[in-house]
Nucleic acid binder design. Structure first.
Lengths: 304, 304
DNA sequence: TCCGAGCATAAGCGACCCTTGGGGATGGGC
DNA sequence: GCCCATCCCCAAGGGTCGCTTATGCTCGGA
């Protein structure tokens, strides 16, 4: 039904014939038999509606239409191989760009490590990073604004349906333990571990809205409602506030990785609370080599 | 055996999918069914080695490789349609160039008439004209220096094998009668007809080498050898020489068509001698529309 | 909850393409 | 002048590819 069109295959054959001057030589160059070349040319001449080459005794010459077609074939086939090469480069991790969205504590720890290793292994792949908290980052993923979204979730939280990411490819990276942070002079400073309920009376400093929501949930299950005096998603700020004695906090361990905890000290909390840090992508994108490679490096960095 | 290549058909489908945003719409646009599009894209993705588009819920988006391929497809398909159009123009007589070689008396009579009609019918086809006498013009045809050769031959001449043009396409144009030319004051001037043998004692003025050879042959078969005082392939010169009373000549009627015969008068010769004027081309070239059209106009002009 | 739209899959079938084998013509070598 | 190698065309066979029909599934919207 879609017949009559000139196909790239025809142009390859024609070019080989024009270059070699004979069907047999073209067939050798193309790695097929001579009748195959003969038939291809017959089909092409049929599509063109005019002879393309003249068999004059020994040599094979082009007609005007044949010359015109060869002239175009050069550019067309060059464009085609260029396209193939570019696609092959993307598929072969020699090129390509991945847009990664991460929450702050991930982008300051996992991401740099993963990208460094990716860069070392595949210098051609470029990864761009944008920061966004989970609800928005997943939205960006779905709307096509990024290829990978680093996100986290609290397994216990029931408010967000556990099936929210069912249509996504989920790569678990690490289980991030939450640790308490108190001023160095605090009464629990040297305790090593503390029950959350024991901090009921303290002023609290909360992190991002999502973490804050989870914090409240956990505290309420422990029998109290925390008095939150400050809330900021900037973890150095949280540490600074704690260090200044303005309150206590419970932060993901990952968030403390890249923050100097001067003036504050950490301690385990009871009950143990963890958040799950995962990389999300779309099913089709998971099969894109550059995306898969980035996911692998992220996983590798998380295992450290 | 030549698999794995990206074909133009794939790019057409991909472009349609990218443009419409859905397989079904692309199928409608391409005039095929939806599974056909689905399979094409699967094959293309297999050849590319990476997904090209992501099925995200309702909408269909391109991956980076898909965008790269679409970007290239634009140029490739444009080049392909340009090639098809150019070939179609040549095949449809809206373009194209024909190189015509003719002997002088043909190029001054038949050719202008034929080219005028060709120009009127197909303004796009251009014909270039070069003058050459038959032995050389056929050589040019065989060596690819022209598409059509106007030539003539003397049927009686045995020296040139009658099979010399067997591998060519021969289009008979006209049988050119040879007429005698004598000065106006000549004793045969008003005779209307004369036997060649009666001119045995006259000084002769011969035309082109080929005609001269034939003239000698005819005269010898009539029992005498002509005394040739002048030989030139420029017919006005021949007429001028005859008009000046320097001799007699036997010329093709066609050659007199465009020459003012002042000072000379024509008469029929016995035995009647004719030369056959034909258009020659190569078998493959005869099927080239522009060549065929030119041949038709030449034949048409000769019938006049 | 039903329904329409859209994509994927499987089976069937036709077309296409390549191969093999043989014939004819051309041009060079002895 | 004859032989032979090369090259192209032709015909037939087989395998693959691509398109179509039919079916099932998912997703959104009424």
């Amino acid at each position: 039904m879609l017949g009559g069109m000139i196909e790239a295959r025809h142009l390859r054959v024609l070019r080989a014939v024009a270059a070699t001057g004979s069907f047999s030589a073209a067939a050798r160059e193309l790695g097929c038999t001579q009748p195959a070349v003969s038939q291809q040319m017959k089909v092409l001449e049929g599509a063109a509606g005019t002879p393309l080459l003249i068999r004059s005794g020994r040599e094979m010459r082009l007609t005007e239409a044949g010359r015109a077609l060869v002239r175009h074939a050069t550019g067309i086939l060059a464009g085609l191989t260029a396209a193939e090469e570019e696609v092959a480069a993307i598929a072969g991790l020699r090129a390509g760009r991945v847009r990664l969205v991460s929450f702050p504590s991930g982008s300051s720890t996992l991401v740099p490590m993963a990208l460094a290793e990716l860069r070392a292994a595949h210098p051609g792949t470029r990864v761009s990073l944008v920061e966004a908290e989970p609800p928005g980052s997943v939205e960006m993923l779905r709307s096509g604004d990024c290829e990978i979204a680093l996100a986290f979730r609290y397994p216990q939280m029931g408010e967000e349906a556990s099936g929210e990411w069912d249509d996504l490819v989920l790569r678990p990276l690490l289980n991030d333990r939450l640790v308490g942070v108190v001023p160095e002079g605090h009464k629990f400073a040297g305790a090593g571990a503390v029950g959350i309920a024991e901090l009921a009376g303290e002023p609290w400093i909360a992190g991002c809205p999502r973490c804050r929501g989870h914090l409240v949930e956990v505290c309420e299950s422990e029998g109290f409602t925390p008095r939150i005096d400050f809330a900021t998603d900037d973890y150095p700020t949280v540490i600074g506030l704690v260090g200044a004695g303005l309150g206590v906090a419970v932060l993901p361990e990952l968030a403390l990785e890249s923050v100097r905890t001067k003036g504050a000290t950490t301690l385990e909390v009871e009950p143990a609370v963890r958040r799950e840090v995962v990389a999300l992508t779309l099913p089709d994108l998971a099969r894109v080599p550059a995306v898969a490679a980035t996911l692998d490096r992220l996983e590798q960095a998380a295992r450290r």
